[in-house]
């Protein structure tokens, strides 16, 4: 198959569209950036694309709540087109603001589930916008985007990234369906090889863990997210939303400690874009 076509959908205030397009291109995709007005004019043109990506930024200023107005546009005008796109096993990625948009637009729920989302992304526990690199453990589950990954180091840059559920059962459901694919972890856990033998994960697998369990302390979990959740996939694994920015680690010089690394690693974030593009080869 030819290069998969990627639509990067921006709204007023989206601002990571160019570098996200660059990351998809670097991974072998053919990326196009559109203003939302263009898609609103002809929602059926989504058919021309294999991947849809909602990039980071401050869509509509994040006024009212982060990603809310963009999500409202999705629900009002693009819902059918988007659910059709998802049902065709095409891929959707939401990064940072894009994750906020997808979550608030209900794209991690089943198509027939029209109740308002019972989880959200809200103000960081300390109430501040923050840019910092975090360690992530990856449990790919069904996610097409995360296959082959165990851990990642990526930057976050957000004010409203705290993942919160209305009821603990919602978190439990996400774990039991293997949707909690990206979670904040500590460098200590990585260094000591505790990723695999994490007691939490064992308890999860055995169905023995009470929710919500205590999140890791700041700054390992930088925003107080319940379940240390940094990213989700939908039950089918085609939709991925994450607060950290994979497009900001596609070159070795992106890493904050690259001058300390004797061998220049490849940008770890690139793997996510590769996975997305490879799915169509």
């Amino acid at each position: 198959m030819a290069q998969p076509r990627v639509l990067i959908l921006r709204a007023p205030g989206s601002n990571c569209d160019q570098e996200t397009a660059f990351a998809f291109e670097k991974a072998g995709g053919a990326a196009t950036v559109w203003h939302i007005n263009r898609l609103l004019e002809s929602p059926q043109s989504l058919d021309d694309f294999q991947i849809l990506c909602v990039p980071g930024g401050f869509s509509y200023g994040d006024d009212i709540a982060a990603g809310k107005i963009f999500a409202d546009q999705f629900q009002l005008r693009l819902k059918d087109a988007l659910f059709k796109f998802r049902s065709q096993q095409k891929l959707i990625l939401g990064v940072c603001n894009g994750f906020q948009v997808l979550l608030k637009a209900g794209l991690f729920q089943d198509a027939q589930d029209s109740t308002p989302p019972d989880t959200t992304l809200t103000w960081n526990e300390n109430g501040l916008y923050e840019d910092r690199w975090v360690h992530l453990r990856v449990d790919p589950g069904p996610s097409v985007w995360l296959q082959g990954l165990e851990r990642l180091e990526l930057p976050i840059a957000h004010a409203e990234g705290k993942f919160v559920a209305k009821e603990p059962s919602a978190i439990h459901r996400l774990f039991s369906r293997s949707q909690a694919v990206l979670r904040y972890t500590s460098p200590h856990k990585i260094q000591t090889g505790k990723l695999k033998s994490d007691p939490e994960v064992q308890a999860l697998n055995e169905g023995n863990l009470d929710f919500p369990f205590t999140p890791l302390p700041y700054p390992s979990n930088p925003n107080g997210s319940q379940g240390d959740i940094a990213g989700l996939c939908d039950p089918s694994g085609t939709v991925l939303g994450l607060m950290p920015h994979p497009e900001r680690y596609i070159d070795f010089t992106h890493h904050p400690r690259w001058t300390r690394m004797p061998n220049h690693r490849k940008g770890e974030g690139l793997k996510i874009f590769h996975n997305g593009v490879e799915a169509f080869h």
Binding site: N15, L128, Y129, H245, E247, R248, H254
Partner: peptide, 13 residues
């Protein structure tokens, strides 16, 4: 410093 996005646009070195 941490309250500023110092990495957007993807060119941070």
């Amino acid at each position: 410093i941490r309250q500023y996005d110092h990495e957007v646009q993807g060119g941070s070195v």
